[in-house]
Design a protein around this nucleic acid. Structure first.
Lengths: 224, 224
DNA sequence: ATTATCTATAGATCTATAGATAATGC
DNA sequence: ATTATCTATAGATCTATAGATAATGC
């Protein structure tokens, strides 16, 4: 137990002073990330991580105070990458001239792309977050940041929306798309009605659905 | 290792010959189900289960060959209840006179009701299934049975559907609703755009969305 | 007599540490 | 001289079993 509440969430990660140290630490974080993605938190032992990183168990504990600290470090790094990417993606400058449908399509396609590049990224994160409240909170903040940003971009274009209550409708559509992405991209996909179909077909139908529900009007329609 | 492949999936659960035995077995299954729902597979030890059931560790191993056999027994029982309920629910006789919207509403409301009654039912099942392929397969079969049944009932009413490709559209809607239910009813719900709103509001919007996407026509519209 | 239960413990992991050994860079 | 690494192992779990003890019902 830490002596006072000001330091109870401080986790010690040693900052190496030799080149060798940084290489080992990097190897450990990388190995841990891969094993977490493959096998989950419980099945990944410190000895496994050390072996995959090509060093000893003792060395792990030289760099990280305990196992949890190592896991938190892995996930913190992942989260930071996501945060930077999200912030850049949500810059309104990037979306000048885009319609709501363009925004939603970009959201879907980018999410699918990310899942293809790093298959178990999200799964590993959720697994670690399950045992560590502070990470769960960080993850929640990230999600809120993403959805707030998207909601804002869409709301700037609310003249396209014919639905009588745009505030409710936009939230509903975001939840709808996020849920379907989760189902579609999750680690071990169970069979679902649409799982046999291609990502392209999925994106098309998802946009058709959102478009009809929001009652989106194209620019030409609004001009009339 | 079993001696031949014909018995390699046979798991031994002793059938008690005394009343006392059946009571203990019942208590063990019940205790295990509760602990699995609360803490997940890895965090539930055999000693925990024994303690909660009010008996000893040795007794657990009298009834179940090993820990996995106990978990499988717990989940098998859950699955059987689900299967019976699903089969009864999908009987076409029950739905004479129902519209597609009635069917979808019933699906949503029943799912929400179930999750309220037995909060961690599904979560526990998925946790066990993750470590046991045969259960994963059973679970997949159950899902397929549910979706095939629903798809059939809806297709019997396809004259209500205005969407140019009803086969695709029905699959898409089922996936959409199933995904959103998963998001909404999952064990530890993360914050989502729509998570602050009531179940009633959710059901209304989900049906509005499905109805617009499928281009459902009411009976009176079709008569015209 | 048979079946069910309990106590106690062996054996397998896994986390974390202590102490010895090797590499680094001022 | 300092920092990083390794080897070996203590201590904490957890699964599963052996053997003794208690309850059941023919």
């Amino acid at each position: 137990m830490p002596r006072n509440r000001w330091i109870e969430n401080l986790r010690w990660v040693r900052t190496g002073q030799q080149d060798r140290s940084r290489r080992t630490q990097e190897a450990l974080l990388r190995a841990a990330a891969e094993l977490l993605a493959d096998k989950g938190v419980e099945a990944t032992s410190v000895a496994d991580v050390a072996a995959r990183a090509g060093c000893s168990v003792g060395s792990v504990y030289h760099h990280f105070r305990d196992k949890k600290t190592l896991l938190v470090a892995v996930f913190d790094r992942m989260q930071e990458e996501v945060r930077v990417t999200t912030t850049a993606a949500l810059d309104p400058e990037r979306w000048v001239g885009a319609s709501i449908e363009d925004l939603l399509r970009a959201y879907l396609e980018f999410s699918i792309e990310m899942a293809r590049e790093r298959p178990s990224f999200k799964h590993a994160g959720l697994a670690v977050a399950e045992t560590e409240a502070s990470l769960r909170d960080h993850l929640a903040e990230l999600r809120i940041e993403l959805f707030d940003g998207l909601r804002g971009l869409i709301f700037d274009r609310r003249s396209e929306i014919g639905h009588p209550d745009p505030a409710v409708a936009v939230d509903f559509v975001l939840e709808q798309l996020a849920s379907m992405l989760t189902t579609r991209l999750e680690h071990l996909a169970a069979p679902t009605p649409f799982s046999g179909r291609s990502h392209e077909e999925f994106v098309d139908e998802a946009l058709a659905s959102a478009s009809r529900y929001l009652q989106l009007q194209t620019t030409s329609e609004r001009k009339r």
